[in-house]
Amino acid sequence: MQSRFLYLTHTKQLFRNFKMAAFGTVFMPKMALSTFENGQWTDAATVSSDSIQLHPGAHVLHYSSTCFEGLKAFKHQDGSVHVFRMDQNVKRFAQSSNLLHLPQIDQRQVSDMILDIVAQFKDEIPEPPGSMYIRPTHFGTEAAVGKAAAPSASSMLYVLISPVGDYFAGGARPLRILLDETGMRCAPHMGMIKSGGNYASALGPILEAKEQVQADQILFCPNGDVQETGAANFILIDGNEVITKALSSEFLHGVTRDSVLEIAADLGMTVSERDLTVTELLERAAKPNVEAALSGTAAVLTSVGTLIHDGIEYKVGSGEHGPTTQKLRQALNQVQWGQTEDTHNWLTEVK
């Protein structure tokens, strides 16, 4: 009982100071949870978010049968709360689960779990640019260490939520990105799965790049093919054209990426989803008005100011925050924050 009291006290204290805390380190005391047992999903329940019960032989701990999602709920000026592009995140969640051969999720149930747990903490959602970050997670729980070549017959699915402020609360600066033509973020057939193993496999090269050339991230370009960084999609902006790699199984199909491309089209820009080589990237980066950016749920859209390749640093355009990048980010934020019309029906209101 005392440890439980200390946990809740600590959580409340962290929440009061969430603007001071690192992104995603403050959690609400409750989460939604369901398990798959004996061929069916249990009814979702609201449980404590400070722990889960898991057998040491659980499939996920030995064979990494796990996937997750990241999306946000925003509080509008009238006090209403809206989840951004929940349908697309739940669809991708189902895709990841299927590709990992986890039990098939019930997309309607997952959507209800998201809306229900966010509704319970509507009053705790920060005002923009803050939001409630939502982390659905699904993993295999069957205790069977002999199943290295077989899927887990049981699983657990929960929805954890975290009040967050601006990802760059201290002020964003243009990023330094190392171009890596020798490695890949993950195995090619795993790229479109949002699985923790993909992030772990990229961690070593990223840490090495930070130490050796003070890079913020690595842009993986196997054999010169520009793909994605360890945690975000890559976008190049050349005048009125937005260029990014066409969707394939090799990299994650970002919901923010898709949103940015749709907004760019709305603004009359040309959207080119195609292969982009390192050679072309460096040639275009030398032009004065070119911009580059990374897109993702947490940071939304962030300018890239420097590319590092074969020991040489290349400034992207002016090397500073790009005006078009900022315009696209602002346009996306205005939809999320309810400051402009939601013409694409991206928002789901939380009742």
Rank of each mutant, 00 (worst) to 15 (best):
L282A: 06
G170T: 01
D123M: 13
H55I: 02
G24K: 05
F93W: 04
I105F: 00
P174T: 08
S3I: 14
V118I: 07
G268F: 01
F23Q: 03
H59D: 08
G170H: 06
T25C: 13
D116H: 14
N289Q: 13
A331F: 01
A265M: 10
Q120S: 11
A153G: 15
L347Q: 05
P205I: 06
D238S: 02
C186D: 09
T137D: 05
V316S: 04
G171M: 12
V278C: 11
Q109E: 00
N233I: 07
G254W: 00
T229N: 09
E124Q: 12
E320S: 15
A265H: 14
G79A: 10
L307D: 08
Q109Y: 00
G165I: 07
L261W: 12
G338S: 01
N233P: 01
V335P: 00
T182F: 10
Q217M: 08
A286Q: 13
K91F: 03
K122D: 04
T343G: 01
S154K: 12
V300E: 03
K30S: 11
Q95V: 06
T141W: 08
D116T: 12
I52F: 04
T325C: 15
Q212R: 12
P103K: 02
E283S: 13
K30D: 13
L8H: 12
P188H: 11
L102F: 06
D258A: 14
